[in-house]
Design a protein around this nucleic acid. Structure first.
Lengths: 225, 225, 225, 225
DNA sequence: CATGAATGAGAATTCATTCAT
DNA sequence: GATGAATGAATTCTCATTCAT
C-alpha cells in the first residue's frame, strides 16, 4: 500500500565520501540543500552551507544551478513529481475509495516518516516561496487535489460516497487534514504515546484515523466502516 | 456565530492621511506590516517598505518596535490572542458541538473574508516561521487546538460525538481541513461557483460543508445531521 | 576665450574633511569616483575604493546611486552637459570661424589642464562603456559634433571656409585631432619641451597649432591665416 | 595604395567546422577573442565566451595562452605589427607625401572596412587599455606616430609640406582625425550618403577628404592640391 | 517624537584559473 | 592535446539597525 520506495532518494542522499560519479554530484547538492533548508529554512540557508554540507566547493553549486532559488525549484519539481506520480497511481486503482484514501494518507505520512527533511522543506518553504503563486506550482498542487478529487468522484459514482458533496471542496478537507497532521509532526506538536512501537504501524494508524474521520465523521452513530 | 468584530483591526488598518493621534501610529505600522508581509513575505519585506506603506519615516519604526521580528511577533501576539479569545468564547458556550464547530469554522473563514491579508500572514508566515517552533508560539497554536479539542470532548461527553476518536488528533483534522481551504482561498485555488452572490452566505456555506464532512463523513449513508 | 570656469567642479572636488552639507556628499562620491576611475579604470575600481576615497561608508554610495554603472553615467551626464553648454555657447558667437575653433580647442585642452582626471575618465572609460552605444550617449556625442559642424557651416556661409567639404565629416577630423592630442597628454605620450613654462600658454599654443593645421593645411604654401 | 592583404587575417578568422590542423586552433582562439572582445569589451568578455565562439573546450584556451590578458596582448602584438609593417612600408616609399598619406589613410580605413571587429578591439580596447601605458604598448603606438612623422618630415624636406609645424605634433592631428572617423564608423555615427555604392570607393573618398583637409586646410582659398 | 542619512556585516554571484581524467 | 568539472578569491549589492539633527 505504502509506495514509499517510489520516493526513495536513492543513494547520495547526503554528502558521500570520495569522488562522486558525475551526475551524482548534482544529487548531492540537492540532498544537501534539503538538509540545510530543513534545518535553517530557505532564507537563512547560505549557499556556502549547502556546499559545505555537500562536501563541495562554493562555486560548484553554480555549475549545476543558476542560483539558490533554482535549487528550491528543482527540489520541488523533481521530488514532487515523483510523489505525485505515486498518488496518481493510487487514484487510478480499481479498489474501494476508502482503500485508496488510506493509501494516499499512508503515502503522505510515510513520505514524512522516510524523508522528514524533504517533507519539511516542501511544507515549510516551497509552499510559501514566491514561486508558489506561479502557474506551474499552482498546477502542481492542483494536480494532487485533482487526483484526490478523482478518487472521491469514483467513490461517488460507485455509490460508496455521498453524492451531495463537491469533490473539489472535499479534497481540500482531506488533504488539509493530513497536511496539518504532518505539519504537527514536522513541528513536533504531535508526539503520540509510544504504544505503537513500530513507526510504520504508528503512521498507518494515524492515516486510518484521518480517513475514518473523513469517511464516517465524528458524529455519534458514525463509525460504520 | 461570533464574527468579525472580535477580529476588527479597528481604524487605521492602513496608512491614514494626516497626523495620526499618537498610539494609532503604532497600529498603522502593524497594519502596514501586515499588508507588506502578505504581499512579499516576511523575509522579502523591507522595513522601509513597511514605513512607506504606513506613511511614516524610516527610523520611526524603531521607536515602536525593537526590530523587524518584533513586528511579526506583535502581529501574531495581538491579533492571534484576539482571535483565540473569540474561539475560546465559542468553546465555552453551552450549545451542541455541531453549532460550536460551525461557529469556529465561520470565525476562521470570516476572518479571511474580512481581513484576508492578516490571515495570509498568519497562514503563510507566522505559522510556518521558524519561530513557530518557539514555546510561546507553540503554546499559542496549541491553545487553538485545545479550544477545539475542548469542544470535541464536550461533544463526546454529551454523547453527540463518537467517543472512540482522540480529540487531540481530531482537532488537527478539523483545523487542518479549514486551514487548507483558507490557504486555497488565499492563493485563489478555490473559486467556487458564483451561485452565492453574497460573500457572507458563501463563506458560511463553505463552513457548513467542512463541518458536515467533519461530523458526518463522506461515506454514503452519512449526512445525518 | 577659455571658458574653463564653466567646467569648474566647485568645492568638494575630493573628500572633504568634516561633515558635508547634504547634497555635497553626492558630489563627494562623484569626485571620488572620478579620481578612482582615472587611477584604476572603471572595471578595476571597486565601490569600496570610491567610498574610501570619498571618506564615507560603503553602503552610502548606494543611497545616492543605484549601482556602480550609474555613477559613471552620472559623471558623463552632468559633466558632459556642462562641457557641451560651453561649446554650444562658442558655436553661437558672432566671430570668425577661426576664432571659434580656437575657443573650442582651448576649451577641450583647458578642460584637460584643469580637470585631467575627469577628461581621463571621459576619454578612457565612458566612451567604451556599454552605455556608449545607447541613443542617449550617441546623441550627447553627436551634439558636440553638431556644435562644431555649426561653426564650420557658418564659416562656409561667411565665405571664410572652403564650401566643398562636408562639415559633418570635417567636424570629426577637427575633434578627432584634438582628441588624440588630449589622449596623448592623458597617456603622457606627448611631453612637449618645456619652453612654454606657463601651462596655460602651452595649451593655448597647442590649440592654435591644431587649428592652424585644420584651417591652413600642411601643404607648403599654406599658413595663410 | 597598399591595402588589405597586408592585414589579411588569413584563414580561420572565426570558428571553423571540423578539426583544425594544429596551429590553426590558436588562430581560432584569437579570431574568436577578437569577435567577443569587439562585441562585449575586454572586461565583460568571459574566457568561456571565447572558447564557445572558437568551438573549443573551456580549458584549452589555457594551453595556448597563459591567461586572458595574454590573448589581448597577442592580438595587439601580432595584428598591430602586421599593420605597422604596412604603414612602415608606405612611409619608406619614394613618392610624394600626399600620396603616402592617402595610402596610410586608406590602410586604416580599409582595415576597418575589411576587419571591423579587429579595428574595434584595437580602437576601443587595446589603445585605451591600461596596458596602453606600458612601455611596450607605448612604443608600438609611437611607432605608428613615428612612421607618419617620418612621412611628414620627408615631405617637409622635399618642400612639399610647410616646414613650420612640428611633425611630432602634426602626426597626432592626422592619426587622431582618422581615428575618430573610424570610431564613428565603428559606432555607426557616420553613415554617409549612399552615393558611393561601392564600399571601396566610399572609403577611399573618406580617406581623400581627410588628407585633403590635413594638407590644404579648411580655410577658403585652400584646395590647392 | 520624527527624520532619513549613515553604517557595515552578510550573502549571492561571477569567473579566471587549475587540474584530474 | 582535450575536456569541462572544480575551486575560491573577489566584488557587488542589500538591508536591518543606529544615530545625529
Amino acid at each position: 500500500m505504502a509506495r514509499a520506495p517510489a520516493l526513495a532518494l536513492s543513494p547520495s542522499d547526503s554528502a558521500g565520501a570520495g569522488a562522486l560519479p558525475r551526475r551524482d554530484k548534482r544529487e548531492a547538492i540537492l540532498g544537501a540543500a534539503i538538509k540545510v533548508f530543513a534545518r535553517s529554512g530557505y532564507h537563512r540557508a547560505r549557499v556556502s552551507d549547502i556546499a559545505r554540507e555537500a562536501g563541495i566547493a562554493y562555486g560548484l553549486v553554480y555549475h549545476y544551478f543558476k542560483n539558490k532559488e533554482e535549487i528550491l525549484e528543482t527540489i520541488f519539481a523533481e521530488r514532487w513529481s515523483t510523489f505525485l506520480a505515486a498518488v496518481d497511481g493510487v487514484s487510478h486503482r480499481d479498489t474501494p475509495a476508502a482503500d485508496k484514501l488510506v493509501s494516499v494518507a499512508a503515502l503522505i505520512l510515510n513520505a514524512y516518516r522516510l524523508h522528514p527533511e524533504w517533507v519539511k522543506v516542501l511544507v515549510l518553504e516551497i509552499q510559501r516561496s514566491s514561486r508558489f503563486a506561479e502557474p506551474g506550482q499552482i498546477r502542481a498542487v492542483s494536480a494532487l487535489m485533482q487526483a484526490v478529487a478523482r478518487i472521491l468522484r469514483a467513490g461517488q459514482e460507485a455509490g460508496e460516497l455521498r453524492p451531495d458533496l463537491d469533490p473539489d471542496v472535499a479534497c481540500y478537507v482531506f488533504i488539509g487534514a493530513l497536511e496539518l497532521v504532518v505539519t504537527s509532526l514536522v513541528l513536533d506538536l504531535i508526539r503520540l504515546d509510544g504504544t505503537a512501537d513500530d513507526a510504520r504501524e504508528y503512521y498507518l494508524k494515524v492515516a486510518r484515523t484521518v480517513v475514518d474521520i473523513f469517511l464516517n465523521g465524528l458524529a455519534a452513530g458514525g463509525a460504520r466502516s
